[in-house]
């Protein structure tokens, strides 16, 4: 098992290395001169060519691209993501202060989404083609089709403006957490309900379920012990992707509710054209995604002994 995790970890490292290449080249592939962009961000539009050249020299932008990359990579490996071009704040420090907010929202909405999706998917599978099934599937379709920004605004209008029950934006208390969670959780559950249902249906048709029935076990044992663990395997992939997405900051929802998380930071840095901060955020989100995938792989191996003992 340990060997398996180490192997996956090595793979994560390779992926992250690839991501650094992409992130770094993005700055150079973007239209416009990076030196000019930095200069504009710092000193405003009114610039002479000399000033731009001065920025180019001090930022090391006149060296060949691969030298620049290696220099940047060296810093990144030492966990130095540079300083914000605008505020001169440490980029990594800036990101770290945003993590708690993102983490809280991610965990609460993931839990809410699973609390809805798993029971709904399982019940739909057991009561296939009944009213319950149709209701769950219609709900899932609605949830998938409803855009987050629209649902978020509706909720603000209803609970904050009309009823005045909950704050419409901000961070700091449970009350602040409710609306963003209700915006994210159910819509994500809509995505997971469908694969849960189809995976459960598939598993319930397997021979080993008939064996379990032939043993005289009751429906509860068959479902929870014999079917669920098998049915969860494909679902975990979806949940892992969602977790990665959430931990990287739910950009739209964080923006609507002025939630001080990673997603909000990314959007703000894009508005401010703060390239160092954008680069840091993108890199951070990519690493989180890779780690979420690693978590999925490990969970897979935990649930499925066939993977655990591969090439033992």
């Amino acid at each position: 098992m340990l060997k398996y995790i180490l192997k996956r970890l090595l793979l994560v490292f390779v992926v992250v290395l690839g991501v650094t290449v992409v992130t770094f080249s993005a700055m150079h592939l973007a239209p416009g001169d990076p030196a000019e962009m930095i200069a504009v961000a710092r000193y405003g539009e009114d610039l002479t060519q000399e000033e731009i050249e001065w920025v180019r020299a001090t930022e090391g932008l006149d060296a060949p691209v691969y030298i620049q990359y290696l220099g940047w990579l060296e810093h990144v490996l030492r966990l130095d993501l540079g300083k914000s071009l605008i505020t001169y704040e440490d980029v990594l420090g800036e990101i770290l202060t945003r993590i708690p907010a993102t983490l809280v929202l991610a965990i609460s909405s993931l839990i809410l989404s699973l609390l809805i999706a798993l029971p709904a998917g399982i019940i739909s599978a057991i009561r296939k083609n009944t009213i319950v099934d149709n209701a769950c599937m219609t709900g899932a379709l609605l949830g998938v089709s409803m855009p987050n920004f629209w649902l978020g605004l509706l909720l603000i209008w209803l609970f904050a403006l009309s009823l005045g029950l909950l704050p419409s934006f901000g961070y700091g208390s449970i009350k602040h957490l409710i609306l963003p969670t209700i915006t994210l959780g159910p819509s994500m559950s809509a995505i997971t309900t469908r694969p849960t249902r189809s995976s459960m249906l598939d598993v319930l048709n397997q021979d080993y379920i008939v064996t379990a029935k032939a043993k005289g076990l009751d429906e509860r044992t068959i479902l929870l012990k014999h079917a669920l663990k098998n049915a969860m395997l494909p679902v975990i992939t979806f949940v892992g992707l969602q977790l990665g997405f959430l931990l990287g900051g739910a950009v739209i929802v964080e923006t609507i509710f002025a939630w001080p998380g990673i997603g909000r930071l990314l959007v703000d840095s894009i508005y401010a054209r703060d390239f160092a901060l954008i680069q840091g955020c993108v890199l951070f989100i990519a690493v989180i995604f890779a780690l979420a995938n690693l978590a999925v792989d490990v969970l897979y191996a935990y649930l499925d002994p066939r993977i655990r003992y591969e090439k033992k």
Partner: peptide, 8 residues
């Protein structure tokens, strides 16, 4: 091969 539960 298919009648035994693979995860138990």
């Amino acid at each position: 091969s298919t009648s035994l539960n693979p995860v138990l």
